[in-house]
Computed example of a mutant assay.
Amino acid sequence: MKQTAKQVVRLGMLLAIALIASATFNIKNVHADSKTINNLKIYFVPSKQPDQIVTATKPLKGLLKAQLKKQGYNVKNVDIKVGTSYEAAGEALSSGTADIGFIPGGTYVMYDDGAEVLLTATRAGLNKDFTSAKKWNDGKATEATDKQASTYRSLFIAGPSAKGQELAKKINAGKKLSWKDVNSAKWGLSSTTSSAGYIYPSLWLNKNYKKTVTDLSNTVQVDSYGSGMARLASGQIDILPVYADARRDFADAWTKDYKQEKSIWAETNVIGVSQPIYNDTISVSKKSKIMTKQFKSALSKSFIKLAKTDEGKKVIAIYSHEGYVKAKSSNYDGEREAQKVLKESTK
């Protein structure tokens, strides 16, 4: 059938309209798909009892989804897990089985080939921040201040055991501990990627005695600070390296759960203090397919805003986090220095 010139023009116009409509539809689909996250996987480290972390962070699912929606992202499901160890959380990020990890700086550095630091947590500063161990031992509780801090210290806590009290007595008399003193105690050590519980104690030992934790004669690994504090209270261990405000977190448990007669401030003393350590990180997986530059920006904004809400503050309080600031990889060079010391010590 022959077509008139008018019909040909009309047909061409219809085809053009169809093509434009199709292109517009496809663009919208691509845009919509790129803004939809089917499953966002978050891992936490077991720095406290795993069941406590799971319960405390449950509201995070809805809160994070709501914040990301404001950034234009539709997250259908948020899956939260607590790693069986610090390493497990780091490996999950490095392999891409986790998208986001709430991990210490030491864990981040150990797995920074597959993990990228996004944010550094801020916490309430403390009314004590001494380099001298003796100055921490006034028998008074360490209190939080209104000032936010992005760094903290590792404290080496001597417990109520005979050896713990012996070392504390020397420190409080203004004496310096010898390597023999330090090595005569039984130490409770956290995971090898724990900044406060392993890495910075090694750096401290190296600077003071040219040793690391691998040179200590009597050590046991503790799977969480809670179990470590329980062992310290019972006298199973003499020394426990912890983050500086750990005694505040376990002050109630010390008398109620661990059945100690006196307060944690009366029965424990600081025998060593580390250099400043940058706070925990929110890191993301370099292997995660959803971690685009745009989504990482949206995540950063979401966590920073979430931490400013009353509901968000309750969730992140499980790690004593009070807010977040953007992080730089170089902030954690202290961790890298410490891990270099550890590697050299095992050669």
Rank of each mutant, 00 (worst) to 15 (best):
T145Y: 03
S154H: 00
T131Q: 05
E143M: 12
D146A: 13
T131H: 05
D138N: 13
V117T: 07
S150W: 02
Y152V: 15
T151M: 00
R123T: 15
S132G: 09
T122L: 08
D129V: 08
T151P: 01
A149V: 05
T142C: 03
A144G: 10
K147P: 01
N137A: 07
E116A: 15
L119I: 08
G125A: 07
T151K: 02
A124C: 07
N127H: 07
T145F: 02
R123C: 03
T145D: 01
A141N: 04
N127A: 12
N137E: 11
A149N: 07
E116G: 05
T122N: 08
L118D: 04
T131S: 12
L126V: 11
R123A: 07
K135N: 06
Q148W: 10
T122D: 05
T120L: 12
A149E: 14
D146S: 13
K147T: 04
T120F: 07
T142H: 05
K147E: 12
A141T: 10
W136E: 00
A141P: 06
N127L: 13
W136N: 00
E116Y: 06
S150Q: 08
A124H: 15
T142P: 00
V117R: 00
N127Y: 03
K140L: 15
T131I: 08
T151Y: 01
V117Q: 03
A144K: 09
L126G: 10
T142K: 11
K140D: 01
N137M: 02
A133T: 05
W136L: 01
W136K: 04
L126K: 14
N137F: 03
E143H: 03
K135G: 00
D146F: 11
D129N: 15
D129F: 06
D138P: 01
Y152L: 14
K128V: 14
T151I: 08
D129I: 02
S132P: 01
N127G: 10
D146R: 00
K135R: 13
T145K: 01
T145I: 01
N137R: 05
A149C: 06
A144R: 09
L126C: 08
S132Q: 13
S150H: 12
D146L: 09
E143G: 02
W136A: 01
N127K: 09
A133W: 01
T122Q: 13
Q148P: 06
R123Q: 07
L119R: 04
E143N: 14
E143T: 04
Q148L: 15
A124Q: 15
A141K: 06
E116K: 10
A133H: 02
T151D: 07
S150F: 14
S132F: 00
F130N: 11
T131D: 12
K134Y: 00
K147F: 02
S154E: 02
A121R: 08
K135Q: 11
K147R: 08
A133F: 02
N137H: 01
A141L: 04
T142L: 13
D146E: 13
K140G: 03
K135D: 12
E143C: 01
A124V: 08
K128Q: 13
R123F: 10
D129K: 12
T120S: 15
A133C: 03
A141Y: 09
F130S: 15
G139Q: 03
D138G: 10
T120E: 13
K135M: 09
Q148M: 14
K134A: 13
T122P: 01
V117W: 04
N127E: 11
K134M: 06
F130D: 10
K134S: 12
D129G: 06
S154V: 04
E143D: 14
Q148R: 06
E116M: 11
G125H: 06
G139I: 10
A124R: 13
